[in-house]
Amino acid sequence: MSGEILLRAEGVGKRFGGFVALNGIDLEVRAGERLGLIGPNGSGKSTFVNCLGGSFPAHEGRFIFDGKPMAGLAPHRRGHLGLARTFQLPRPFNSLSVLENVTVPLLFGPARETSPAEARARAMACLEQVELAGRAAQHPRELTQVDLRRLEIARAIALRPRLLVADEAMAGLSHTEVAQMLELLFRLNAAGTTIIMIEHVMRAVREFSQRLVVFVAGNKIADGDPNEVLAMQDVEEAYLGR
């Protein structure tokens, strides 16, 4: 947890019309870190990821990733620089097979695999990592929710990211499936990937996070040791809705 700072958010703000979805968020993430990001529904977690990934621009503030300001960079450029994210609601390429879904980031990603055959082999390796290799030839419409989430992760790690933001990768998963997903994220982290885990499954967040950040109504209200953060009065209130 002692790496250099990989990502820095400086006063990031986002409004939808008059509604303030993010309000001056400051955040630092160190290389190699496992960060948990929690908050009630609608607190701005996914919005933060969308601004970070470049899906839409932040109204104020900026992101600095790996020493480079991200402002104005198209989403795919951010992907090439090592920033990968999953979508909270899986967004597979429905006309492509599961394997082809994962081939896309390999063909267009930072490494730009030289041959389609090579890309396919690497895509298969990514699918094996998420235990989806057996479904390589199937189409996303044939997959269960769990497998769709696995596919999201496989597509993200095919970019060989330095930072992976997993937006609720465990929602709706069973106990054993959550354990599998956790194991995968731990393995990726051990291999050097910095991970931000956005999650409502508290058990997983507790086990995974070295540090915990809490958003409430677009504000960062806590940032620190998971046990201390979870014991805070404000955090409890935010979750119990008082």
Binding site: G53, H76, G79, A84, L107, F108, L159
Partner: peptide, 24 residues
């Protein structure tokens, strides 16, 4: 490669750009 990228952006443009596809 071009065909694969076009298919990806046709299916889901946001997911395609997140996957590194230079959609524009």
């Amino acid at each position: 490669r071009l065909g694969m990228g076009l298919a990806a952006l046709r299916d889901d443009e946001r997911a395609a750009e997140a996957a590194g596809v230079p959609t524009l």
